[in-house]
Design a protein around this nucleic acid. Sequence first.
DNA 1: ATGTCGCGCTCTTTGTAGGGCATGGGGTAG
DNA 2: CTACCCCATGCCCTACAAAGAGCGCGACAT
Lengths: 123, 123
Amino acid sequence: MPYKERDIEKQYYTIGEVAAQFDVAPSLIRFWETEFDDLKPRKSKKGNRLYSPQDIEIFRTIYHLVKERGYTIPGARDIMKQRGPQLKEKVDVIHSLEKVRNFLVQLRKELDVAGKQQPGGGA
Amino acid sequence: MPYKERDIEKQYYTIGEVAAQFDVAPSLIRFWETEFDDLKPRKSKKGNRLYSPQDIEIFRTIYHLVKERGYTIPGARDIMKQRGPQLKEKVDVIHSLEKVRNFLVQLRKELDVAGKQQPGGGA
DNA sequence: ATGTCGCGCTCTTTGTAGGGCATGGGGTAG
DNA sequence: CTACCCCATGCCCTACAAAGAGCGCGACAT
């Protein structure tokens, strides 16, 4: 490896740097750490928090939900926990609904054979 | 016309009825009225609040955002104002789909009477 | 090279303004 | 007597901020 990987890997930020980056108080970051299980930075031997880029992404998500979208902390917590599965469920629901739609379209066809008129409806 | 249509059209609910329907205190409904411009029911000559079905839909949306999704009141207000129509559509779609589902369940029952077997599908 | 002073950053614990309603008083209509 | 009105005040958590104390590091003198 030509470049020292340590210089890339070892990007850890202090709580003060994170606070400055988001323009919030360090106390807020520590408080959120007690509220969100996902936000648990590594700690130095001394006990200082060390934030990895992943930790910062997590913080950014929480910041977005709480400060920009206006979620309560419990509301944001729920989203953080069910983010992955939630997306899969949505896809499944859409897939189910497409099946239902095809069924209903077919049903309408069959009903049309009976000669009745059906006003078109928007979804 | 055998039944009086007025009984269907003229559905206004008192604050007590709405409160019971959602299992909340009337004071909460009055408080939200001061917080959400969209929630402004008609009032009787005496001054009592009269909630139309549309008013109840609005209340249901707010209830959904604040109590089930975990939005703060400002957060819910933003959604009501910026994406209000879109969100209302979503909620309406969900309720419509629930009705459709019930209809389909009933339909399957009736089809079962014809002697055919239908493999059950998960929703 | 080594005490030590001071400064900046961090830590944990404790304090607190305000958000989000509930409650109580005084009144009206049915 | 009950259910509603309005208004004011009460009040309990939520969501942080401030207080107090402990490192670590450079500067400066010894």
